[in-house]
């Protein structure tokens, strides 16, 4: 279904060169948003742009390193310069996540990259986007509405035995969302999180190598499958980006087929 719910809106999606970010970008574009594919490498971002354009959507790629504040600032500035506005900021990019023993974890090897791309980058994106999200929310009803969406994880709620330092990085994003929801409520900006489990390239590769892993995940998931990056995860992002969610803020929507039921 394509109802063009985001016509005239401009969205930035970080980490949109693949996986969940790509799925979100595609879904927002299907609904009429002009989407900035903020990818670390043009080699991954440009094919997504071409694919969206080939289906009649509007997209550009801006090479962005979310761990560097100047790069995030430049991405936002360039987006606004090209399209005149920014309504939706989705921070999805994330790097790191090497399995480790907590007692032997090394800051540089097991924490810094996740902290920079998860926690710091969330604050960078919020800071850079804020004035434009305020402006979007000041538009007449139905013509705007600032949205910040942070992609977290069920592990950010329940902890992780396999990658213990992954969870605190993702948990911090939820706290940032709640804090900014309080801080930005007066402007009408909503701030929410999505905790997805989806068929990202990394997960699908892992399934290829270890079919038992796929069976195990599907067995513990009430809906019996892993989420589709566009139809399942992208649609939740669409809800949070659209006017349909204008009274929803500070929340985390876990989108994993019911695997995690601990909220």
């Amino acid at each position: 279904m394509n109802s063009r719910r985001l016509e005239n809106r401009v969205a930035i999606v970080t980490g949109a060169g693949q996986g969940v970010g790509e799925g979100i970008a595609r879904r927002l574009a299907q609904e009429g948003a002009t989407v900035v594919i903020a990818a670390r490498r043009a080699e991954t971002g440009e094919p997504v742009v071409e694919s969206i354009r080939s289906r009649g959507g509007r997209a550009v790629c801006i090479v962005t390193d979310v761990s560097v504040s100047e790069s995030v600032d430049a991405c936002v500035a360039s987006s606004v310069q090209q399209f005149g506005r920014l309504d939706i900021m989705v921070h999805n990019a994330f790097m790191g996540g090497i399995p480790h023993k907590l007692e032997k974890a090394q800051i540089e090897k097991h924490w810094t990259l996740m902290s920079r791309t998860g926690v710091w980058a969330s604050l960078f994106c919020a800071r850079a986007a804020m004035p434009h999200l305020v402006a979007s929310s000041a538009r007449p009803k139905g013509e705007g509405g600032g949205r910040l969406i942070l992609i977290t994880s069920p592990s950010g709620v329940e902890g992780s035995a396999n990658i213990p330092l992954y969870s605190p990085a993702k948990a911090a994003q939820r706290a940032i969302a709640k804090s900014l929801a309080r801080e930005w409520g007066e402007f009408g900006i909503t701030v929410n999180c999505i905790g997805p489990v989806a068929g990202s390239p990394a997960l699908l590769t892992a399934f290829d190598r270890n079919p038992a892993l796929q069976q195990a995940i599907e067995a513990r998931t009430p809906l019996g499958r892993v989420g589709d990056i566009t139809d399942d995860i992208g649609s939740v992002a669409l809800f949070l980006a659209s006017d349909d969610s204008s009274f929803v803020t500070g929340q985390t929507i876990i989108c994993d087929g019911g695997s995690f039921l601990g909220l």
């Binding site: 007692e103 902890g159 994003q173 939820r174 706290a175 940032i176």
Partner: peptide
């Protein structure tokens, strides 16, 4: 926001540690 991030980050790390240890 950064203080809340720290508090929640530490709180959830507790769960990871509990799982491993």
């Amino acid at each position: 926001a950064p203080q809340a991030a720290l508090a929640e980050s530490a709180r959830i790390l507790v769960k990871s540690a509990a799982r491993q240890w």
